[in-house]
Design a protein around this nucleic acid. Sequence first.
DNA 1: TCGTATAATATGGAAAGCATATCATATGGA
DNA 2: TCCATATGATATGCTTTCCATATTATACGA
Lengths: 168, 168
Amino acid sequence: MSQGSGSQVTAVRSRRRLNRAVKEALRELGIQLTRLSRGVGERLDLRGGDLQCLDLITRYGPISPSALSRQAGLHPATLTGILDRLQLGGWIARDRDPDDRRSVVVRAEHGRGAEILRLYLVDSGMNAAMDQVCAQYAVEELELVARFLSQTARAGAVAADTLGGSRA
Amino acid sequence: MSQGSGSQVTAVRSRRRLNRAVKEALRELGIQLTRLSRGVGERLDLRGGDLQCLDLITRYGPISPSALSRQAGLHPATLTGILDRLQLGGWIARDRDPDDRRSVVVRAEHGRGAEILRLYLVDSGMNAAMDQVCAQYAVEELELVARFLSQTARAGAVAADTLGGSRA
DNA sequence: TCGTATAATATGGAAAGCATATCATATGGA
DNA sequence: TCCATATGATATGCTTTCCATATTATACGA
């Protein structure tokens, strides 16, 4: 009995330790992704918030400025300025929403998105580095990792909504 | 032979697909962590760059402003302003470096770091959400995930250095 | 010891952020 | 239908932040 409960205790401790390790690694990852993002922004002459919005547009667009401001947690007026700059730089286009003529839909200009991704991934070496990392894992393991990352992203989205949403 | 090479091809394709899936999930995760971070910053009355720096200080500090500006990819003069605000808010302290009297070391004020973490993790529900996610995985699986995350963070660090470093 | 390099900060002009006002359009109810 | 109110985007003006440059203090090599 002492051995059985002993290894149970060990398992629980391992799990606790791993929970912490995962969270810690996640925090570190966040820091590094932020740094990477800033580097990319600098190359493209885009300030922090601008790149974040562009990223959101390429991913979730076409999208209205108001929806975007909620997503990004930015003041609507701030967003007008950001969109002005992105439009001036040829990154995005603003179209009128046919269904609601007050509204505008923002979409990424074709071809430009690829430029970001290339910088993000290729020029920085991140793409090759990730291929190397992935190569170390079996297919089933990568499946696991991808699933974990998606779940974590979703958890982050919910958490961000919780924080940002209560601002109303 | 046709069957053997066929399943080989399938395996290669799976791997390609998973590589893409992992990168995509990583990008999504980056977006969500950025959103979460902004939400936290808003609660603490800290703008984007300020929180990023504070995060770096709590993690790598005590650290000199110049080293910090390199890490964060910010202009030294910008950093002075950021540190002024962080100091005014009681988040950090500036001490003279005993070895080099030109230099300053910045360190996080005790107790405050915990406040950030609490907001990041607890108030936003991220902590509980991550516990739930982790609970779905076996100990060995978590071990795998933690290793992957660390490797990815390191890859991100190298990539960010590559982009930022060539600015010199 | 002197010239040069480095670290941090001060200064001032440019840019960005944000609260508020404004204008156009939508929507629900009398 | 008409009107009151709500909503979406942007304009305006003030405040804050950013950043190139200059400045001050210290280190270090010739």
